[in-house]
Design a binder for these strands. Structure first.
Lengths: 147, 147
DNA sequence: CCGGATCCCTAATGATACTG
DNA sequence: CAGTATCATTAGGGATCCGG
């Protein structure tokens, strides 16, 4: 338990308070802060993650159990699903509810914060669907050009 | 040259034609295809990439040279910038122009296809900026709960 | 100045076995 | 069922040197 998660769990450089406050400073106004230790970068790294995007998009449909997510997301391992869900829970995007039954049941759903992300993630998915042909074509051309 | 790129270059399973055609099949209509070998998943993996997002967002401002990108994106190495740019070029999102001068000059800009992604990537960045406080708070609560 | 090719190391991820 | 712990693997990414 020392290198889990897309980023380390407790992590972040010690004294980030000062850095955080001047986070958006001394750059031209049209550009957002791209510094590595910036909140935005860290959040982006979590959201724009291979599995996180899929989980969020799936939870659009409503509450799902661990096993359901596991089956829906082709190729994810139990481990990565756990890690991904924990990170999302940690960031307040997903709520985890344990029902003290036997056999145990655990349900996941988007929080209201998580739901504010839905539009954007869906936009990404939609974009991918709409442009996959163009991209495939571009790849073929690129390959053909024998760069 | 055998393990570069966010995904392998020539890659993709051999006979994907059949799979591709039935790609969106036998699932409920409200759900997109999440299969690992699906185009959408592969494209998503490329777009939702730590560096790709940053590069695309930066190229919003216009044409940039390799060195400029390198300096703007805090923490990226020459190598990863090269790899990222080549992937984006390969997918037809970025155009690379070499000027046969000495010293050489290479410029990168979004293609029209790449520009169709801008709205979405910016939305992601904006979302992150707007909600960073909530997320930081959620993390602190989560940590406090000593889960 | 813009990268390509290599070497190398660490972090990320998969597989498996175990538990409440 | 829903994880956790451990081990093994590998792919991501940095450093460096080289060529155009």
């Amino acid at each position: 338990m020392a290198q889990e998660g897309t980023s380390a769990s407790p992590g972040y450089p010690a004294g980030t308070a000062a850095e955080r406050s001047e986070c958006r400073a001394d750059r031209d106004p049209f550009q957002w802060d791209v510094r590595e230790d910036c909140q935005v970068r860290q959040i982006l790294d979590r959201i724009a993650d291979k599995w996180s995007l899929l989980v969020i998009a799936l939870l659009d449909e409503g509450t799902l159990r661990f096993g359901e997510l596991s089956r829906e997301i082709d190729g994810i391992s139990k481990r990565m699903l756990t890690v991904t869900l924990r990170n999302l829970e940690r960031d307040g995007l997903v709520r985890r509810t344990v029902y003290p039954e036997v056999p145990p049941r655990v349900e996941y759903e988007l929080t209201s914060l998580g739901r504010t992300l839905l539009g954007t993630t869906q936009a990404l998915v939609t974009w991918s669907e709409e442009h996959q042909d163009e991209i495939v074509r571009a790849r073929e051309e690129f390959e053909a050009a024998a760069h």
